[in-house]
Design a protein around this nucleic acid. Structure first.
Lengths: 344, 344
DNA sequence: TTGTACGCGTTATCAT
DNA sequence: ATGATAACGCGTACAA
């Protein structure tokens, strides 16, 4: 049978309480005592029993990642998970995944249900959950701690998590397109409920304004974050009387759709039309031509969000909203604007 | 405070034991009693405390997915996770993720460490872990239950999990290429340790044999499952005096690399060279031209592996190795062999 | 700084 | 078919 705390206490010649103190890094333990305990624990290969710990401590030592199910297989989520796992491991926490269907009307109940069953000590929310005021308010009311990733909502006593200046990133992307000589730059916007939509759209407009290019509503189409949204948006845009020479998609999946539709029409990228994305998914490096896009440090975002959440769990005063850096990844899908278009 | 089993017992006018029996679907409970208990539980919104359950039951109600970290963001793993979660939820189990670096010499210890810490009731292993005899033997010795996905190894008292006839699938892919008129068909093989490498390579040879095409060692290059492996392999193949007219990559990531390198050289796909993959990742639909490949039902595989594992946990006699179907996804990356090549 | 003793909520054992 | 009670292994008041 496995060593218990009692065995360690006996071997070290101290009480169970002292062993507990050592393992939980509590103060008021003499260095010498601690070393004794650690040696005994090592010798017995002792590991605290997580269930017993939870039961006695009235905590689950568990945090839960809530994300939208259709996006369940996106590399965005996967990277966040990996980062989250890193943070959890370091602090003897576990991570749990809750892919829920956001489109279900009762997704708030689904989250509550999940909390009731598994009793996580905290939640990490990504969009669109991170932007759902009804959900956030409910969590606040329930006293459930949470961290958000890329949330537009400004709710909660202590708003914690990570954020990235998507607006500035988008503006920079447009500046890059302008530098390449583009004037007719279109945007396929993200889904209505994501903060990302508003930020990237605002950044797009910022970029145009700074370049002295008038905003043309015809060049902005509603879209989403999927490949098909990119295809549909591109159809609209390329059917225009004066089609754009560059298309900035709301994210990489959508940008792949843009390229797909462009190719379907026999256009070349970037010679005939330049394409820009957002996210830097693995696919953005693998497609041809490789996609110029904005990198979000998803793994770091997951790790940081978890760290801030765990800090807040330990101490309600702790935890912050951490801004993480983006990076423009200049690849091959963006090229000089076609001469013909320039002359128009 | 939350309702405990005692509260439910009192409300229903029965003992705690009976409530426990009802919740665990044990026999020897009168229908009438069960209904009483269920009504009381419903009224009190009672949820069993997982920690208490684990502690008293000496089980963690937790299964762990072990996979290679570099592949952490692959859609293959993501889909498996989703399937696994579905199975767990249905049986009141939790799922935990263990991305470990297989290339680390002590990955067996890393697995043991993870088991010691979190005490999962079972493991799900994917390649290359599923093929690691040393690991499997160690787990057998420790009495740890596990299910494998796509393992070539035939170990364990009760070998359980899922398997797919990759060899037959690969042969079918080659048959498809032959139908398109290809005779010089190359293969970029998978990484040495994966069962997938051997199966897909064997299927490739089967396919050639059936078409009466002599095996040419020059047309088979060592590779791996990454984009870069595809690029490197394609360089070798296209530098050949008699380059192939079709390239069958070990998987989709690698196939993307093949296409990338072909485009770099100014070749057209599929007019100049046809490309075939394996896995049906999301990217295979998004790239241009879309990739002809073999679909593996990863989500189902994850679900089934978890189900078999849970069955085996409950009853050591239970659990089986379930064969799942593949599907040829004919898309645009495969086309008729170039006339010039045919004449050679 | 260290130790004693109780309680966390459930399952398992053994009666009845 | 149902119930009483002792574990399960740890955290935490409280005492020393």
């Amino acid at each position: 049978m496995r060593a218990r705390i009692e065995d360690v206490a006996q071997a070290a010649g101290v009480s169970m309480t002292t062993v507990s103190r050592v393992f939980n890094k509590e103060p008021n333990v003499r260095e010498k005592t601690r070393l004794k305990v650690e040696a005994a624990a090592q010798a017995l290969d002792y590991r605290p029993n997580p269930s017993a710990r939870s039961l006695a401590g009235n905590r689950s030592y568990l945090i839960s990642l809530v994300y939208d199910d259709p996006a369940a297989a996106s590399s965005y989520i996967m990277e966040i998970i990996v980062g989250m796992l890193v943070a959890c491991e370091r602090q003897r926490y576990s991570a749990m995944l809750r892919p829920l269907e956001y489109s279900n009307a009762d997704h708030v109940r689904a989250v509550e249900e999940s909390i009731a069953q598994y009793r996580p000590d905290g939640l990490i929310l990504v969009p669109p959950f991170a932007d759902d005021l009804k959900l956030l308010r409910r969590l606040d009311a329930l006293g459930v701690r949470y961290a958000t990733i890329s949330a537009k909502a400004k709710l909660g006593h202590a708003r914690i998590g990570t954020i990235l200046d998507e607006r500035k990133a988008a503006a920079e992307m447009i500046a890059h397109a302008v530098e390449l000589g583009h004037r007719r730059i279109a945007h396929i916007a993200g889904p209505p409920l994501h903060g990302g939509r508003a930020w990237r759209l605002a950044g797009y407009r910022d970029g145009l304004r700074r370049a002295g290019i008038a905003y043309d509503a015809k060049l902005v189409v509603d879209g989403g974050f999927t490949f098909d949204d990119g295809v549909a948006g591109t159809r609209q845009l390329l059917d225009l009387k004066h089609p754009p020479t560059a298309i900035f998609a709301a994210n990489d999946d959508s940008a792949c759709g843009v390229m797909h539709e462009a190719f379907e029409r026999g256009l070349r990228v970037p010679q005939d039309v330049s394409v820009f994305g957002f996210d830097d998914t693995p696919a953005s490096r693998q497609i041809w031509p490789s996609l110029t896009t904005v990198r979000q440090p998803c793994r770091e975002m997951g790790r940081i969000a978890a760290e801030q959440l765990l800090a807040a769990i330990r101490d309600p005063q702790a935890g912050a909203l951490v801004r993480v850096p983006y990076e423009l990844m200049i690849r091959q899908s963006g090229g000089p604007a076609p001469a013909a278009a320039k002359r128009r």
